[in-house]
Design a protein around this nucleic acid. Structure first.
Lengths: 197, 197, 197, 197
DNA sequence: ACTTTCGGGACACCCCGTTTCT
DNA sequence: AGAAACGGGGTGTCCCGAAAGT
């Protein structure tokens, strides 16, 4: 890793909390300058413009959050265990980045304008959904999960509930909504297990 | 209603789509000027500052969306019917305001800074939750819903799932996630009905 | 004098110090409201617009200053005595209006734009000059002043010196320049008396 | 001279005619933008605020006018010649800046408020007076001018007459008053020469 | 190479002169 | 008669991105 790459990476890491908390418009280049200790000219050497920086920051932020919450991690174990684990980790592990879940934040932030950023969010959501679907399908193949289960619907409901609860939890300043979501999701997961009514 | 009040109201109504789509920072006073056809001096006659306008806009937007989706409406019927109806209307009736659900948008937008706006969002969430709780409690009293049901948890899971699905639906450009959320929520609602396993 | 006329006059009198001190642009309608205790609608009932008010104010201010300094007053006595008296009164009697001489102030203030006001100033200057000329001519006729004396030049030099000294005196915060002007003007006046070298 | 300094200077030079013609309040930043071709952000980069710009403009304007009229210039020759020359140049050389003499304009304009600007005008007047006094005193030392001559009074009368005449000339649209002032001042100067009555 | 400076544009808020309704 | 409304313009701030300048 060259010096330039290290600098670039350190900019991304320093800026990530800012962008996650304040959003694209709420976070100025000057803010990034302050937090990195670098000059404006230096920043523009490493990033074409603010949007590129924001994209890189989002990529980094999401990866960090996904890793911390074990969303991307490869696991062994039964499908149900893995789904429950995914929910549990989301609920138990707070976002390592201040400002909550970057997926939700950026989805709302880039809803109007910023198509590049928006595409990244869409891709990130797709990754997460594919991950859930893969687990469900593996569970079906293993005869653990009902064959008629719509894996995409499971992914949607899991992600929707977690992200929605995340929003409520931030708003209320406590983790109650997340706990409630975990409970509800677990009961939904139970419902797709073979042998359950 | 005086002329001034009418002007003020028309400003709010015209600005609502803008704020809902672009957020507080993404929507400038100049944008509001253009969309209302009024001059800056006139706008600042009716609103102390941009934040006050944003607050009024949020109040209006939320009320409109809640009305369109029948969240605030008084209903008769069984608790289950009413809960299902609330979910169904959220899923079926699109937000009358472009930009999606103002509750979610503003919750994320005002997460950092804008404490006044943030408080309004918190209150709005509280209203919705109270509404759900009231229905559930009425159901319990009527012997329709299991006595041990945690009404607040029901409210959290219902709202979380709907808002999360709303985010996904906007991101993907279709209503699939909302439909999936409806299905999941209905099955969760079934679970609290007396006589179900 | 009707009530309306009295109101109009009181507006003019109250606004005069303001306009004289701050100038046309520096004195807002709101300032006039405050100083008169009247509402905006009432002001616009009595005056077509700000310019008309300013014109009336100038007319009143100048007349008041001219009266206080005895410029317009009819006098008997020799021409030299009357010229010396005019100078002396200008030097000794301070402007009854705060802000200095309205002629100078408005001449500079209305130099660009405000042609109506500008015309009034020009006329006022003309009046003063005619007054001086009349005295000089009377002196010539009486054999008191040299026949070849250019009365208009005398008027110019007298007014120029007094107004210029007035400006210096205001700037320096004392009356020295006015005293010096008086001395110089007296010596100039002496120079046109018959029998002087 | 750096680029910034050049820009700053060009702003001052472009704005000078505007401020001299319209005064501080009559000349808006937008006007300066138009005349310089620069944007607001650029202007405020070079000047703290409008007052600072006005001060710099006054400094420049006065210096330019003083130079054009040879007020600051070092001269040889007799005191009387130099005084006469100063008067003649003021009368003959029109202000290189449209709008007349900046000293008079700004003295009246900054009479109320703008203490910074007012101080500059006071200083400028002081410079001019000191210049006249120096000439007179040199004349006294050389035995050319009467010993009892009050040099400060000479300065006052010279400046007062020229500025007052300048005001009249602008008002009337011709140079007559200036010519009359020159004539009167020359005769006053003659009066202080040794050997004259 | 690096940082300071520059320039252009937008923005928030404010105030003014005038008019229109109440 | 008076209060509110309105359109327009004003000032000062900030930000982004580029260009100097060392």
């Amino acid at each position: 890793m060259t010096k330039g790459e290290r600098t670039r990476q350190s900019i991304i890491e320093s800026a990530a909390p800012l962008f996650n908390q304040r959003g694209f418009l709420g976070c100025s280049i000057t803010d990034v300058m302050e937090v990195t200790g670098l000059e404006k000219g230096c920043l523009y050497r490493h990033f074409e413009n603010k949007e590129e920086l924001a994209c890189e920051v989002f990529r980094y932020s999401l990866q960090r959050v996904f890793e911390a919450r074990g969303i991307t991690q490869e696991e062994s174990g039964s499908a149900v265990t893995r789904l429950r684990g995914m929910v549990e980790r989301f609920v138990e592990v707070p976002s390592p980045l201040p400002g909550g879940c970057p997926l939700l934040n950026t989805a709302v932030d880039a809803d109007d304008g910023n198509p590049a950023l928006r595409k990244l969010v869409r891709d990130a959501l797709g990754d997460w959904k594919r991950k859930v679907c893969a687990i469900v399908k593996r569970g079906v193949e293993a005869g653990e999960i009902k064959a008629e289960t719509d894996s995409k619907a499971i992914a949607n409901m899991l992600i929707a509930m977690l992200e929605g609860a995340s929003m409520i939890a931030r708003l209320e300043g406590n983790r109650t909504a997340l706990k409630d979501a975990q409970f509800a999701l677990n009961s939904l997961i139970d419902g797709i297990v073979v042998g359950q009514s």
